[in-house]
Design a protein around this nucleic acid. Structure first.
Lengths: 195, 195
DNA sequence: AATTTCATGTAATTCGTTACATGATTCC
DNA sequence: GGAATCATGTAACGAATTACATGAAATT
């Protein structure tokens, strides 16, 4: 019950689904492989892992790599802790994957969802992409309205900032359009026909 | 000493420098006019205002609009509280404006700084823009390196996410290049020669 | 041998939201 | 006179960081 950190929990389960890992490595992959996420600190990550274990979604295992086994057997000392997804954890992750809702379209949530698209069904992918798109279109609408109301009172820099912001959002909408089109056509970028 | 919320404090002082306002209005302008900021909640804004008053940077004033005066005089009841920047507050804001450092190049900080470029000197603008640019270039470098290391092990969606992320950063770098060029040429977007 | 990187964790603090509570003003 | 919007606040909670503390393994 204690510590549930939405995105982090989701990303950790998703990464561990591919293969067991220890905390330090997980953290690196949250930045690099998944690219999108900011670097969660250890002060966030480790307590989160403990909580996931307490929930029965992960189990701690002694590192299975030879050097860890050696280290652990030489003395009773602490070796690396490798986390592995349990059956319940897997099930829980499936639920999270299948769920789509307003929160899902938010910036960071969306990036996290997208990063695990490979493990999702096409209709979930479509719901996520389309939801994200309408969320962005709403945002554009608000920006346009606000700009129309206040244009005269703004100085050049503020105006330029708004213009650039809107352009970024419009660009993401176009990107989503392509992705949605691509999903409709029933294929990934280069894998060819799939599913 | 109590509540200092970097960005919010900065934005509030900057907005109040243009003209006195009450909390509710401030909050709207943080979203709309300044466009960039997420909507700070009242639970954040009002305590922040109180803290700024405690610091002597703002003073509370009875609303000067006729309907407020009427309401306040009719009964001893609470009217709108209009906040006005004090001389010390103005001075403090100048200091914040003049300061440039690593924190300044961060995403949200940068947006806040940019929103008040109109009140800054050209050399500060240049430092902020160039700092932001090198920060983004560092980020690009890391992304490229990480991508080169892990490309084969990533599925198409993860790859696409990284590609789009990098493209967004590259786009912002180009934007900054234009702005820097424009500053070098010694003019704002449309105001013509200035300072 | 020393330094860097790997590896795990805790406590205090920061930043901000949500939910709640209250009441005035404007519009229909 | 009822609803929507304007307007101000507080208390409890949440998410994540920073600074701290510890120690093993690899590299130079």
């Amino acid at each position: 019950m204690s510590r549930r950190s939405g995105i982090l929990e989701f990303a950790v389960l998703g990464l561990l689904r591919e293969s067991p890992m220890h905390g330090y490595e997980l953290r690196k992959r949250l930045n690099t492989s998944l690219g999108v996420f900011r670097a969660f600190s250890y002060g966030t990550l480790y307590p989160c892992l403990k909580a996931l274990v307490a929930n029965g979604w992960l189990v701690e295992e002694p590192g299975s790599a030879p050097e860890d086994a050696r280290a652990a057997s030489l003395a009773g000392r602490r070796a690396k802790i490798v986390y592995r997804l349990t059956a319940e954890g897997k099930e829980h992750f499936e639920e999270l994957l299948a769920h789509t809702g307003p929160d899902t379209w938010e910036d960071e949530h969306f990036a996290a969802r997208f990063a695990f698209f490979g493990q999702t069904s096409r209709d979930v992918r479509m719901r996520v992409l389309e939801g994200r798109r309408s969320r962005l279109e709403e945002r554009l609408e608000k920006m346009r309205a606000s700009l129309a109301r206040t244009r005269e009172r703004l100085d050049d820099y503020t105006l330029e900032l708004q213009r650039h912001g809107m352009e970024s959002v419009e660009r993401e909408v176009r990107w989503l359009n392509e992705l949605i089109e691509s999903e409709r056509a029933g294929r990934d970028k280069r894998t060819g026909p799939d599913q």
